[in-house]
């Protein structure tokens, strides 16, 4: 069974004037049918306003479909009785770590979620410990979150979600505010959760290089799924991506330009290692 399934999901934002009359309707998600298998690592790309975040908020039952249905681990998000179970099955991490951290001490912040769910005290402490260890923040457990760097705070936010024992984590641009090392730390932590803990990951990002490790990339445009495939398949379509206001990793772009200038190297080169190999082949072949 799929961990996430959307069937013909459509969501309209309705704007109203002061008297409550409808002024306009914006269809943010338009007839999207998506299936995510347990343990998959999915990256969602798309320009600002393409519907990525609106789609993501349906997985966590923050928003509900105008039309269509969303299932999380078999539960319909429309089912009021399941809403807390859905939110602990699919946890969500947002862009700004400062808006997500509430505790005065790191371990207290991470324990908030399970405490709120009514988990027994002893088990809360076990969960806090394992979650902080999973994101490499255990040694900071007694610190004040205010004293942490952006990347560290964001890893604490992820630990807070982990402590609720989700099967799936949705991350909405978790690295947008971070410096290069903070970005690396967060992506490494997320990749490890997927590899080791087998947690399903849905990562929304504007940093193309963060998506190379995904099993599948979904590109959204005007509320619809515009492209879908492995990173190599997606990043082989450089011109299409640019038309959708997106980009490719710099190395991929470089290889694409070299091809245009006549070098016989394949499309969809994702890493500098692959570029070296491809160029060696040109040299001696």
């Amino acid at each position: 069974m799929e961990i996430i399934k959307t069937e013909n999901l459509t969501f309209d934002y309705i704007r109203r004037d002061e008297d409550g009359n409808v002024e306009g309707i914006t269809t943010a998600v338009d007839d999207v049918s998506l299936k995510v298998k347990p343990g998959e690592f999915i990256a969602i790309l798309g320009h600002n306003g393409s519907g990525k975040s609106t789609l993501a908020k349906h997985i966590n039952a923050i928003l509900f479909p105008t039309e269509g249905t969303v299932f999380v681990d078999g539960m319909n998000t429309r089912d009021d009785e399941k809403i807390w179970e859905i939110r602990s099955t699919a946890g969500m991490v947002f862009q700004n770590p400062d808006n997500q951290i509430i505790g005065q001490v790191v371990e207290e912040d991470v324990g908030f979620g399970p405490e709120n769910m009514g988990v027994p005290t002893k088990e809360i402490w076990e969960r806090v410990e394992e979650s902080l260890k999973a994101v490499g923040m255990y040694e900071f457990r007694k610190k004040s979150p205010n004293r942490l760097s952006g990347g560290q705070k964001q890893r604490v936010s992820i630990a807070g979600v982990l402590a609720m024992h989700p099967k799936c984590i949705v991350l909405d641009e978790p690295t947008a505010m971070l410096d290069p090392i903070g970005r690396r730390e967060v992506i490494r932590a997320v990749t490890a959760l997927n590899d080791v803990e087998k947690i399903t990951v849905i990562l929304i990002t504007h940093n193309m290089d963060e998506t190379i490790g995904a099993n599948r990339i979904i590109v959204m445009d005007k509320g619809k799924i515009a492209m879908e495939g492995t990173p190599r398949e997606i990043f082989s379509r450089v011109e299409e991506l640019k038309a959708l206001r997106l980009d490719v990793p710099q190395v991929t772009n470089c290889a694409h330009e070299l091809r245009k200038r006549g070098l016989k190297i394949p499309e969809g080169i994702l890493t500098d290692k692959e570029l070296v190999e491809a160029l060696k082949h040109v040299n001696f072949g």
């Binding site: 320009h47 600002n48 947008a176």
Partner: peptide, 12 residues
Amino acid sequence: DEPTAGLDPRGR
């Protein structure tokens, strides 16, 4: 101060 944080590649 970080004017492009959160913008898509073309917006950036």
